[in-house]
């Protein structure tokens, strides 16, 4: 990728304190552990992973909604994680968030026009007339009618509410929008509407998206490149085509093979990669590869040695000891 990255995250870690007993030692749960990724300007990076993989926490840390423990996140040239006070407010103007649940992400006691205007009220010093104009334009941009501005959130459907959330995220003309499972609470027809709206807005305003999802179909539709997370680590990162056509990490292969598909008669049926068991206890992680306990090709030393990301081509890397070896053939390709 030749473009300079708009968002560049290096070695990001987020940990939460866990209390044990009254005077016990503090212990920490690393929800995001040493994660690095880049999003070029105007593009979309998808982060996929199962529940509890840390994808949302990573996004919240980048938006400064959860404190990061270590690492660097840069927006253009500016360091996001060290900003405070006025600088932080200026940064928030450039990074906005679209939330997962349109039913809880809008303040039920406010009229939707005020909800969309909230970022303008706290982050900009525009005049009332300018703010009104911006809100009017945003309502039009997301396909809501002007007379709906006076209504309250509970008078809208899920898809309409998500449009309001999108309008709010656009209010300060941000460069980066983080979509945290932005469509997963919606039904399929509405999902398609919202995804198309997001793509149209991306083209219209030159937006950069960090797109968090567990739905590979949605990610394939939306993203230019994709990072796969498992237990707080990125296990594989690639542009869309190579990730879907040439997945290298056993976990990615398992994920891709789990996407339901209509089997055509005559075609050989796919062999699904099964990963038995549950993810390891995040309070007590194994020393080596975190996927070792469920990996179909794990060897004894997998649970001792931690795999580092290995490059496969310029835009593709996977954190597995067996990248590019025969061992991977045992679990076959996704198709």
């Amino acid at each position: 990728m030749t473009d300079t990255p708009l968002l560049s995250v290096e070695n990001l870690s987020v940990r939460f304190e866990i209390k044990r007993g009254g005077w016990g030692k503090k212990s920490y749960l690393y929800a995001v552990d040493d994660v690095s990724f880049q999003v070029p300007k105007g593009q979309t990076l998808g982060i996929v992973g199962e529940s509890g993989s840390g994808k949302t926490t990573a996004a919240l840390a980048v938006a400064r909604l959860v404190p990061a423990h270590q690492g660097v996140a840069r927006l253009g040239e500016d360091d996001i994680l060290s900003k405070e006070g006025e600088d932080l407010r200026r940064m928030r103007r450039r990074v906005q968030f679209i939330f997962q649940d349109p039913y809880s992400s809008l303040n039920p006691r406010k009229r939707v026009a005020d909800i969309v205007r909230e970022p303008l009220d706290s982050l900009s010093d525009k005049s009332e007339a300018e703010k009104k104009k911006i809100v009017d334009d945003l309502f039009e941009a997301v396909g809501l009618r002007p007379e709906q501005q006076r209504l309250f959130p509970h008078q809208f459907s899920g898809g309409q509410r998500q449009r309001i959330g999108i309008a709010r995220a656009l209010a300060t003309q941000p460069e980066l929008i983080i979509c945290d499972e932005a469509v997963s609470a919606l039904d399929v027809a509405v999902q398609a509407q919202i995804l198309n709206l997001l793509r149209r807005l991306q083209a219209q305003f030159g937006l950069t998206y960090l797109f968090i999802s567990h739905d590979l179909g949605v990610v394939q539709h939306m993203c230019d490149s994709i990072a796969v997370m498992y237990m707080g680590k990125i296990v594989e990162q690639a542009d869309r085509l190579s990730l879907f056509n040439n997945p290298q990490h056993p976990y990615t292969r398992a994920l891709l093979s789990a996407v339901p598909r209509v089997d055509h008669p005559g075609q050989p049926s796919r062999n699904r990669v099964l990963i038995p068991g549950d993810p390891p206890d995040p309070n007590n992680l194994p020393p080596g590869c975190r996927f070792a306990s469920r990996c179909p090709i794990a060897k004894p030393d997998c649970s001792q040695r931690e795999p580092l990301p290995q490059s496969i081509g310029t835009t593709h890397s996977a954190a597995c000891h067996y990248v590019g070896t025969d061992a991977l053939d045992a679990i076959g390709m996704a198709d």
Partner: peptide, 17 residues
């Protein structure tokens, strides 16, 4: 912990408000 409070924080609303 609700998302609309998170959203207000992302919108830079100060603590007292």
């Amino acid at each position: 912990e609700l998302e609309f409070v998170m959203a207000s924080r992302a919108s830079g609303v100060p603590n007292a408000k």
